[in-house]
Write a protein that binds this DNA or RNA. Structure first.
Lengths: 244, 244
DNA sequence: GAATGTGAAGAAGTTCACAGCA
DNA sequence: TGCTGTGAACTTCTTCACATTC
């Protein structure tokens, strides 16, 4: 907001920049072996303008070396710390149907700074079952817990994030139960009208939405078709507008 | 670039508007029973500013009635036609592992204007297998075809869109084979560095990226936390910048 | 009276272009 | 010389405010 000088370091990073940081991080990780990159090289690999990249990084302060470039390792630490923090962050997967199971099978969490801390379901034939998941130190087995045990699971793991993979009709209720025990950061794959309780930060990924956007550009190929990528959502949000 | 005036009606719908249309459509569909809505009601349900909504809809021309509101049914048709077209759009699912299977199990496609036209894999124990999927007229069985049969499958179905659900190492090759037979609109769930061949429109959904953005706002709760939603990507794109 | 459609103001984000430092 | 860091221009998106129409 207009107030004064450039956002120095902490706090004032623009939303658009935040949304790009994960991509920078990913490309940087693929750069293992290289120790210094220039903004041009990195920007090229990510697919953004070099000036954009430099401006984005400048919100962290003066992190590069003029005439040289950026230290890859340092950037990784810097961005990673700002996004997820220095430690691995625990999260839950709620709803162990096909989608939840697929999510549990993803092996990229440790590298991204996350770890599956608990699997939750309500179906009697699933609860109690074990499932192999990837961790920093290799595969482990996790038991599927009942939704009723949520308080204990959260208390035991400190998870504040959950992937919501339940069927649409169970979504709202599950969301509220999660919120009640302090799991207030939700990545939902339930596309239907879910409303975030007060205090909950809900991001949602909707397959149908993605397909529709893709279809639009398929239909209208001329229209300055932009380098569009993954969804841009807005969804039901917690943050109230500060009046009008 | 830069050429000229305001986008009049046809063709020139801003990118930001396109990204919101699927959400409007979804809320409108949930409104079954209501026949007229005002911009305030609709905007409230979607979580945007009423003026925003009116401006977005105005790109279609004068589609509401002053003093009254918008006709729900008409809006649904209008938006739906602009996004996916009047007919149901066929697409493929490539890679029938856990994720691909979960995608095949999603029942929301018909309602969103899509239909699964083919399932593809390479594993001998999967190819030939049948799988039940939802269609407009109820569940059907589809056989999983081999990637080598792609030309025939595409020729037979007319699919121009694919969900890419293969393991990372197979991604680039699969992408190129899809491109070669004219499937140039790809929604990828493979997060690792995939480069879109010339002419391919690649959107990608990355779980790790979503989690990292969520984690950021978890860590920095003050920072004007915005009503952020689903991913905003940019990824490897086809569209070349018109020089520099 | 009520709600749309829209020009114009304002905010946010992107890109340029160059000063400054290694 | 080379590449970062950044003010300033520019573009895009959002919101306001009001004339217009039902």
């Amino acid at each position: 907001m207009s107030e004064g000088a450039a956002p120095p370091a902490t706090g004032g990073i623009p939303e658009a920049t935040i949304a790009r940081l994960p991509r920078y991080l990913q490309v940087l990780r693929d750069l293992r072996g290289v120790s210094i990159v220039s903004s041009h090289q990195l920007a090229e690999a990510v697919g953004v303008n070099p000036a954009q990249l430099r401006k984005d990084l400048s919100y962290f302060g003066s992190v590069g070396t003029r005439g040289v470039g950026y230290d890859v390792g340092r950037l990784i630490t810097l961005i990673s710390d700002h996004l997820v923090g220095p430690a691995t962050r625990p999260f839950l997967i709620v709803g162990m149907g096909k989608l939840g199971t697929a999510m549990a099978g993803f092996t990229g969490y440790p590298e991204r700074g996350f770890r599956i801390a608990g699997l939750i379901d309500v179906a009697p034939d699933r609860v109690g079952t074990k499932m192999r998941v990837a961790t920093t130190i290799g595969p482990t087995s996790l038991v599927i817990h009942h939704l009723d045990d949520l308080p204990a699971v959260v208390a035991g793991t400190g998870a504040g994030i959950a992937l919501l993979c339940v069927p649409p009709r169970a979504a709202q209720d599950t969301l509220e139960r999660l919120a009640a025990v302090g799991v207030t950061n939700i990545l939902s794959f339930v596309s239907e009208g879910v409303h975030a309780p007060e205090g909950v930060r809900l991001r949602d990924v909707d397959l149908g939405r993605e397909l529709q956007i893709l279809a639009y550009y398929q239909q209208h190929p001329d229209t300055t078709t932009p380098p569009a990528d993954a969804a841009e959502g807005q969804g039901t949000s917690t943050q109230k507008k500060v009046s009008v």
